[in-house]
């Protein structure tokens, strides 16, 4: 057996939440993120995924045609994940991305103003209502944005880019704090 033991640390664990009256930027717990890829030709996947995953509201998030993220606050035990993957087959396949992607929450009256500095996505509630998700660039980093509340967004980003994106978001939020 190797002497080397990898230690899993939350990548944004050392970051201080940026908080003010109009904006709050906070790292979310590294729970569960499952990337679901449907087989070509499968339709009506969202109700199916909702029933299989048994998760909270806004937990099944579209990524692109035929692809979704299933998001959970708590880490999912291996056994439970295996049975979830089995339940998805043969219509879709699941890939555990819990350690590969990180979630960041940005909320408050100025959240969409701050985000708009980095992305060309139209964040107006009429174009991007609660529950809507989209993959876009924030600066030069590709990220998945979901509106989880009228003034709250969740960002899913690849782990390797998380610190960089956090620093960018913190800088973008400076004028509102």
């Amino acid at each position: 057996m190797s002497e080397f033991r990898p230690i899993l640390r939350p990548v944004l664990g050392t970051k201080q939440a940026v908080s003010s009256a109009t904006l709050r930027l906070s790292p979310l717990p590294e729970g569960t993120i499952i990337h679901v890829l449907a087989r070509p030709g499968e339709e009506d996947m969202v109700p199916f995924l909702g029933s299989v995953a048994q998760t909270a509201a806004h937990a099944v998030r579209p990524v692109s045609p035929g692809q979704w993220f299933i998001v959970g606050e708590e880490p999912m035990p291996h056994k439970e994940m295996k049975s979830l993957f089995a339940a998805l087959e043969p219509r879709a396949s699941g890939v555990d991305q819990s350690h590969g992607r990180v979630r960041i929450r940005i909320e408050g009256k100025m959240a969409s103003r701050a985000l708009s500095k980095g992305t060309a996505l139209d964040l107006d509630p009429s174009a991007f209502p609660v529950g809507q998700s989209s993959v876009t660039l924030i600066g030069h980093i590709a990220a998945h944005i979901t509106r989880v509340g009228s003034e709250a967004f969740e960002i899913i980003v690849l782990r390797g880019f998380a610190e960089s994106l956090w620093d960018d978001l913190a800088r973008m939020s400076l004028e509102f704090s």
Binding site: S64, A120, T136, L137
Partner: peptide, 10 residues
């Protein structure tokens, strides 16, 4: 067609 209008940088 999947995402709407997006800048060419993407």
């Amino acid at each position: 067609p999947n995402c709407g209008r997006r800048p060419k940088e993407e």
